[in-house]
Design a binder for these strands. Structure first.
Lengths: 130, 130
DNA sequence: GCTTGACCTTCCCATGATGGGAAGGTGTAG
DNA sequence: CTACACCTTCCCATCATGGGAAGGTCAAGC
């Protein structure tokens, strides 16, 4: 399987597969005589793991830790759980920060007429609030 | 006022003030004979505006639009309000995405014993779920 | 066999917002 | 006059991703 097919099968772009290999997140695959990367099913499986970890908001580095845990059959599930819950806390913190911004701005907007007149408490507040 | 004092007074780092100037977000300030940037109160006011817009999650480019609206005394408040509400929608979308990740992961974690045993539904799911 | 087009390779550049730091000039207080 | 704090510009790094150029490879069709 060439990189294009591995990309198709895993949902990870060819560009990113090469990048993940370059930074050491995934193992370099076999190469054909002409230098093409050749992927087998286990490689694709790993790529899918990476894609899903990324889609759960883990950074590439954290994904590397997850991969290591995944491959280590003797790890304690407590290690995985603590990593996951720490990440959950970070996600929730970021979500809360975004929602606080949205709430503030929505509040400002609710006081803005939104018509032809220039008066606008949104800009007034951004320009003078503490 | 030199750039350090303007940074102190506005809450924007000297590095970022130079960057904002370089990309054209803010006007180049006056210069002293020796080439030092010299800021007056209106400059600091603008910097504070930028800082607050950024802290509400507006990108630098969006902040530029807000600045233009702020300086344009004849703009309609409807223009400001629509920009603000569009941004609110984006913020809420991002927050919802993060919370969905957190919820998924929290759900997976709730099924993980978190003890010395290696079995872990978190990794199992990341490794095999669709 | 030869051409064509789809694929692959590596290499470099760009993004967005920010910080770090080097090399060198300036300004001020003691 | 010497320190020291500040300023200047310039380059580099981050994080994850995409774009694209220049050139090699492979398979299908003529």
């Amino acid at each position: 399987m060439n990189i294009g097919q591995a990309a198709e099968a895993s949902g990870v772009s060819a560009k990113m597969i090469r990048y993940y290999e370059q930074i050491g997140l995934i193992e370099p695959p076999a190469r054909s005589q002409s230098g093409y990367r050749v992927y087998a099913e286990p490689n694709v499986h790993t790529l899918r793991f990476v894609r899903r970890a990324r889609s759960l908001g883990f950074s590439v580095e954290e994904t590397g830790s997850l991969l290591a845990l995944w491959r280590d059959r003797s790890r304690a599930s407590a290690d995985v759980k603590s990593l996951a819950l720490k990440h959950v806390a970070e996600l929730e913190e970021k979500a809360a920060a975004l929602q606080a911004m949205a709430a503030t701005l929505r509040h400002l907007a609710s006081h803005c007429h939104g018509d032809q007149r220039p008066d606008c408490p949104i800009l007034d507040k951004i320009g003078s609030a503490s």
